[in-house]
Structure formats: structure tokens, C-alpha cells
Design a protein around this nucleic acid. Structure first.
Lengths: 333, 333
DNA sequence: ATTATTTTGGCAATCGGTTGACAAAACTAT
DNA sequence: ATAGTTTTGTCAACCGATTGCCAAAATAAT
């Protein structure tokens, strides 16, 4: 067994400083409560002993662990990179530590992982959860929950406004002569998938275009590639994919079959993930302010924790935006 | 404040089952210690109350938290995601939870974050740390440490063998008529950077080629792009970049200047990150078995934890491999 | 039937902090 | 100088589990 001269405790400090342990606790946690000189002495002793508060000992009476959980469906999905990054930095600023868990796109794993982690954290951020509304509401009764890209009644969320980005994108296609659109959809249980579809539907109709949904599909490269036949069969000249990963898959499949993008087919993804501009042509996409989403999610959790509000009102000032790159263009003459 | 009917404790179970709390603890943690019938009754009560052990209460007497920390330099660097993924799944299998912290490529942040997290975990995995050897050895005295892609005396590590992949790559270049190589190096403090350079040097010389080091550089896209002039000036016909990110940056800069890859310049990255095959041409690279690296790192930590070994011997059976894609080819006639 | 042995479960101390209640000390005001 | 207030630090209970020790109960052996 690692011997590791075990960490100093407040009792060690108390002895060194010649005061009671509870005085040490007060000096360290409630500045001002204790006489300045005594506090200085205690702080000096703490420094000398290289004291670090034992987070578990503290968590026991207070119930606060200073940890937040982020649940993601797939840790290798680049969408999460930025969300996690934003969350990480916001959490660190407030002295919180992030715990990241992965559900591997399965609601069973997700429930499991959540059960393991929930007791250990002060709040939970669910990014692309597959849980049903009831489960989420139940969880929210135990610990503050914030949803990313999903809305559930009585649960806080951070959902950038879909409409601006989708509107711009549809406008762009209309301006380039497209008449027939397709949406290569993602998991049917995905709230954001439905939200995207509904917004697309609305704008396509508004601009006098037809649109069909092709799916559901797994939200990955492979599913994007495999869909090429159905896309072609649909007669659509432009296709939105549920996410960039699928868009990239589709781009590849098109290249393999000699289908020219954007000449014969325009492709627009969602998310603007890392690497979406590495492709040839670079993928046009509807970008989410992912870093800010992560930050806002942490803030929302902490707000619930600090205040006694049970629910933070829906809605955020975050917006999507269309990023025009090379995978979209004029419809074939 | 969230009311949350507070979680059931072993005392609640004890009352419901009509036994002593310590009996509950034994029944739940030491199967067999308690009469089967009593244990069944206790388990039933636990299930009925939806009991979850409070990890903090448990951690206090045992000192074990069932959590492991993974420290990464940059959470947006795709290299880490596979490592984290591997680590996550290995940890989950053993009932451990991963805590991920980011140093943002700064040794000060890293020391800070480590100080915050170390008391809360049973072991630490350092991926691309910027800490110096002494600090790492000091940390290793407190908690088991496993290094990824770095070696420090008396500290365990997981380092795939560089040589096979580099050898293959250099051979490939030699077979294609290259005579002058360059290595676009990464951070000078990076152990793996030095290891890669030394291996390249060795094989370049062995195959009768010249090689120069160009750097140090930040390990990101931008630094790769900015290096294009120096690469050209060096007269090298093939360049290895410290990582794929830099290789992709270089690829882009080359495209912008009309330099044909691989006709005029061959480029080989390291790591085989997500997206390295999205580029045009797709990037040839030296792949690390990153997922397995993550898994092995967790295993190494747990081995130290379970046994009383203080150090696990260096070396692993993991290897690098050259992945031939489109960014390398025959030297210009 | 009695003693020896093994199981089983309860008691109580412990981990390292936090915090309400309270008394001693210090300070203020009259 | 005395009573009234405020400040400061101590005491002790508590958070929820774990675990060594021990006695009671059950079982086995003679």
C-alpha cells in the first residue's frame, strides 16, 4: 500500500496553531468570523502543513460536493467537445469540478451511469439525453438538472434558437434555385431532431419548396453514407443532415459514386463540428454556439443551486447561424 | 432549496428490515458474511427504498472514492477523446468514475487543477502533462499516477512503441525517392515530441536521408499553417508533423499557396485523430492505439491500487502503425 | 445432555469536517 | 466602576458509512 504521509487535517492545524479544530474550520470557511490575528495564525499553520480540505469529509455534513456531472451520448462525437469545453471553463471559474459520463447512445447505460454519478454531484447537465420526460423530471427532483438542446416541462434548459440559422440556410437554397429538399433525420427519440425537422418544414413550405424526411438514422458517419441511395431516389437537390457527421458521411458516399457536390447535390449539416471544414468541398452547416451553450448550462445549474428557484425559465439568447461553405450551390440547370 | 426527499440511508434500511445498521452495511458490502435470509430481507428493503450508497460517507472511513482523474492538456484536442473514451469504458467496467480536468496547455493550471482534484480521487492519469519530473514523482507519492506518452523514473506509464510506425513511414518515403526530410516539432517540453524526433532521426540516417527539425511550435492547426515557409525553405520533400492537427494546418497552407500535395510535398502526421481523413488529400499518419492506451492506463492505476506495488514496470505491448493515405507519394521527378 | 465450535448480528468508535449553542473575553456606553 | 453588547473561541452533536470486538444464538461433536 502506498504509504503517502497522509494529508494534514484541521486537527493537525488546530494543534499547531493552538486552537480548537472548530475554530480552524471557521477560520478557513467563514472569513471574518474569527479574529484576524488568530485567522492569520491558522492560515499560516495550514500553509505550513500544506493542508487541503478533504472534499468528502466536507461533503458529508454539507451535502455539497462542488462537482457537476455532464452526461453525453457519445464522447467521441465532436459536438460535445465544445460543450464540454465551455462547461469545463465555467465550472472551473466557480470552483466546481466536472465529471463526464457517457451513455454510448443507450438509455439503459445512461440511467445506470446517472444513478452512479448523481449522488456524487451537486447538479447534472444532460446533453443529448435519451431518457424520457418522466425520468428527467424525476431526476430533477433530486438534483438540479439542465438540459442541452431539449425541452422538458419544469426542467431548465439551454437551447439555442434554431430558427435563424435554418431560415438563412433555406433562403440560401431558395435563392439558388432549389425546389426539392430532404432532411436526413437522426434518432427518432431526439428532441432536437424533431425541432430541426419542424423548423425546416415550416421554412421550406414558406419558400414554396417540397421537403421530405428520410430516416430515422443513427447520428453517425456511416448512416450518412448509407443514405445516399435514398437521397438520390427522393429527387431532392439539397439535403439537410441531422448533424455534420452524417453530412460528412454523405459527402463521402457522393464522392465515391461520382456525384458532384454541390453541382448535383447540395448538402448542409448541423453543428459546425471540428473537422467539418476539412472535407472537400468543406461542409456548409448550421452552427451552434456550443462553447457558450456549455457555459450557460453550468451557469443555469449553479443558479438553481444558489437560489431556491426550482426551475429556471426556458429560453436563451443564443442563436444558430448558417455557415456557407462549399457544399451548397446553384441547382443543376 | 430543492427539497428532494433525501436519499435513503442504511439506517432507514435497518429500521425497515428490523436489523442493526452495521448489519446492513455488512450485507451490502460483504456478501456471505450475513445469513442468507437476513441478507435477502435487507436487499429487499434496500430495493424498496431505492437505496444508493452515499459515496462520500463511504469514502470517509475507507479513503477510497472509486474515482479516477484524467488530466489532459487541451480538451478540444481530438487525441484525448479516444484516450478518454478508452479510459472511460475501462473505468466503468470496474465501477470507477472518471473525472476529467484540463490544463489548457499550462503547467500552472495543471498544478492547480491537480491540487483540487487529487484529494477526491484514487488515482491520476496524466496525458501530455507539462509538469516536471519532480512534481510528477511527488504526486506519485500521494496517489498512484500513470503517465500517457511519457516516461519518468519510478512512475508507471503507457507508451506505445514509436518505432514500428515511424520505421514503416520512413521506409515508405525512402521507397518513393525522398532524400530530404523535415520534422515540424511540437512543444519543446513534450517528452513524446523528443521521442518522436529521436526515432525519426535514427531511421532517416539509417535510410541515408537528411532530416532537420523545425520548431518548437504550438501543437495546433495554426502553427502548422504558419510553418509552410520554413518547410519550403528547408528544401525537404517530405515532412513529419508533431501531430495531425499541425499536419492538417500545413495541408491547408499548402493548398492556399498552390503547393501540390503529395506531388511537391509529402506530409505525415502523428496520432490519426478524428477528421484526419476528411482532408484533401486525406492525411497519411502514424496511428496510436489511443483507445487501448486509455484502457491500459486505467488498468495500470487499478493494479497499483489493488496490489501493493508502488511502480508498475515500464513498457507496453502497444504499437504505432503507419497509415498510408493520400498526402504522401513519389518525390517530384 | 453437555461442551466446543462456528455463525450471526449488535455496539460503539472512527473517518474529517461543519455548525448551533453557549460561555468567556473584550469592548462600549453610561 | 458597572451594566450592556458584541466579539471570539470551545464544546459537542452530527453527516452516513465501515469495521474491530464481543456476546448471543445456532450448530456440531462428544
Amino acid at each position: 500500500m502506498r504509504v503517502s504521509k497522509k494529508a494534514a487535517t484541521i486537527y493537525d492545524i488546530a494543534q499547531l496553531a493552538g486552537v480548537n479544530p472548530s475554530t480552524v474550520s471557521r477560520a478557513l470557511t467563514t472569513p471574518g468570523r474569527i479574529n484576524a490575528k488568530t485567522e492569520a495564525k491558522i492560515r499560516a499553520a495550514a500553509t505550513e502543513l500544506n493542508y487541503r480540505v478533504n472534499p468528502f469529509a466536507r461533503a458529508l455534513p454539507t451535502g455539497r460536493t462542488k462537482m457537476l456531472a455532464v452526461m453525453v451520448a457519445d464522447i467521441t462525437n465532436p459536438v460535445f467537445f465544445d460543450v464540454v469545453r465551455g462547461a469545463e471553463s465555467a465550472a472551473a471559474e466557480e470552483g466546481y469540478t466536472l465529471v463526464i459520463a457517457e451513455s454510448q447512445e443507450s438509455s439503459i447505460n445512461e440511467a445506470d451511469a446517472l444513478e452512479r454519478i448523481t449522488p456524487a454531484v451537486d447538479g447534472v447537465i444532460l446533453a443529448t439525453t435519451r431518457l424520457d420526460d418522466q425520468t428527467i423530471q424525476g431526476l430533477n427532483r433530486q438534483k438540479p438538472v439542465v438540459l442541452v438542446n431539449r425541452e422538458v416541462e419544469n426542467v431548465s434548459d439551454v437551447v439555442p434558437d434554431n430558427l435563424p440559422g435554418i431560415k438563412e440556410a433555406v433562403e440560401h437554397l431558395a435563392a439558388n434555385g432549389h425546389k426539392h429538399l430532404a432532411f436526413l433525420s437522426g434518432p427518432s427519440a431526439s428532441w432536437i431532431n424533431i425541432a430541426r425537422w419542424e423548423a425546416l418544414l415550416k421554412f421550406a413550405v414558406a419558400y414554396g419548396m417540397t421537403i421530405v424526411e428520410i430516416g430515422p438514422n443513427e447520428p453517425n458517419l456511416e448512416a450518412g453514407s448509407k443514405a445516399i441511395e435514398r437521397i438520390q431516389a427522393s429527387g431532392a437537390t439539397a439535403v439537410f443532415t441531422y448533424n455534420d457527421l452524417m453530412g460528412i458521411g454523405l459527402l463521402r458516399a457522393a464522392a465515391e459514386r461520382g456525384i458532384k457536390v454541390p453541382k448535383e447535390l447540395s448538402i448542409i449539416g448541423f453543428d459546425n463540428i471540428f473537422g467539418s471544414d476539412f472535407t472537400t468541398p468543406p461542409l456548409s452547416t448550421i452552427a451552434l454556439p456550443l462553447v457558450q451553450v456549455g457555459r450557460n448550462a453550468v451557469e443555469a445549474v449553479l443558479r438553481q443551486l444558489d437560489s431556491n428557484e426550482d426551475v429556471v425559465p426556458h429560453g436563451s439568447d443564443l442563436q444558430t447561424a448558417f455557415i456557407l461553405r462549399g457544399s451548397t450551390g446553384q441547382v443543376k440547370a
